[in-house]
């Protein structure tokens, strides 16, 4: 428990550092977002409106430490300012649009790829040298060697365009209003299938390989020999004794991947016009939408930190050796 508290403290420190960086970096870049926006509206904006905008962004024009204080104060009130690209929507509202879809798409793909890859890795190591082990890992690594957006385009072309079996774009049928009805959920699932599959296909081979190699190491351990000698069933030895130990090093990788979930799979979202974070980020960059960019980077950073903490918790749960430290 003390270990977890100490870790938590470390993450709070890291969060503060990243918030501060998030404040400094845009101010090092040339140009001023409020002026850029002013230019975008070609002088239609009143000077008063421009001043209000500046204040909302934290570009109050005062000394840097005052700007910093204002920035932090806004942040803690959950006020990330107003988006330029989606003016006059608040950044938090814009983020809320994309966040859920990205969490759904990337989150489900990462979890499925990790679970499936690990399971395949366990079986491949268990049947080392079999036909299964000789064909599947090379095949999946071959697939994983393609850029993931290329796989996405191939799937889109094959299943979406040529076969017309699955939808080409967006997260749900635009004739449906978002609700918890069966038709809507089914539509979301249908739209999710292709982009999620493309991400899973691109990453499952890596998970399989790393699980396979750590599993092969574990299978040579004395406690596995011992489990055989105990006359336990092969399934119990495979999962309870071998896989549980082999999983430990891979949990770290899983946490990293989970942390980058909110970063989105930028190009996948673009290929499928999926309305997630990655898509928003591109919009933000195109229109020099600093507040939105800041908001997106902030959520990504927080997600990475939260995922790291989650891994720490998971480790304590999975590996008794980390307890009581």
């Amino acid at each position: 428990m003390r270990y977890l508290l100490r870790q938590l403290g470390l993450y709070v420190l890291a969060a503060w550092a990243s918030l501060t960086l998030n404040f400094i970096v845009p101010r090092l870049a040339p140009g001023d977002p409020a002026s850029a926006m002013f230019a975008r509206y070609k002088g239609q904006l009143q000077p008063e409106a421009l001043a209000a905008l500046r204040e909302a962004f934290g570009f109050t024009g005062g000394p840097l430490h005052e700007q910093y204080a204002a920035y932090l104060a806004h942040l803690f009130r959950g006020d990330l300012g107003v988006s330029v690209a989606y003016f006059p929507a608040k950044v938090t509202d814009v983020l809320a649009m994309g966040l859920g879809w990205t969490a759904l798409l990337t989150g489900s793909s990462v979890v499925v790829a990790f679970a499936l890859g690990s399971l395949l890795g366990v079986v491949a190591a268990w049947r080392r040298g079999s036909a299964f082990d000789a064909t599947l890992p090379p095949l999946l690594v071959f697939l994983g060697a393609f850029p993931y957006f290329w796989l996405a385009m191939m799937l889109l072309y094959g299943f979406g365009f040529t076969l017309d079996a699955l939808p080409l774009r967006h997260a749900y049928e635009d004739t449906l209003a978002p609700s918890l009805s069966f038709a809507f959920v089914a539509s979301v699932a249908e739209h999710l299938l292709l982009p999620a599959t493309s991400i899973v296909l691109a990453s499952v081979g890596g998970w399989m390989l790393s699980m396979r190699s750590s599993m092969i190491g574990v299978l040579a351990e004395d406690y596995v020999t011992m489990a055989h000698a105990k006359g336990l069933s092969p399934l119990r030895i495979m999962f309870h004794y071998a896989a549980r130990n082999a999983l430990l090093p891979n949990v770290t990788g899983f946490g990293m991947a989970l942390g980058f979930v909110l970063g989105g799979s930028l190009l996948t979202e673009i290929v499928f016009s999926y309305p997630g974070q990655g898509y928003l980020l591109v919009q933000a960059v195109r229109s020099q939408d600093y507040p939105l960019m800041q908001g997106i980077f902030l959520t990504i950073t927080m997600a990475v930190l939260a995922a790291n903490f989650l891994v720490d918790v998971l480790y304590v749960w999975l590996d008794p050796r980390t307890r009581g430290r």
Binding site: D222, Y223, M226, K230, N245
Partner: peptide, 17 residues
């Protein structure tokens, strides 16, 4: 036929009680 292996250090799985 049961076994006592060389180092019980490694003969017991570290993640199980």
């Amino acid at each position: 036929m049961s076994f006592v292996l060389q180092s019980a250090m490694n003969a017991l799985s570290p993640v199980l009680t």
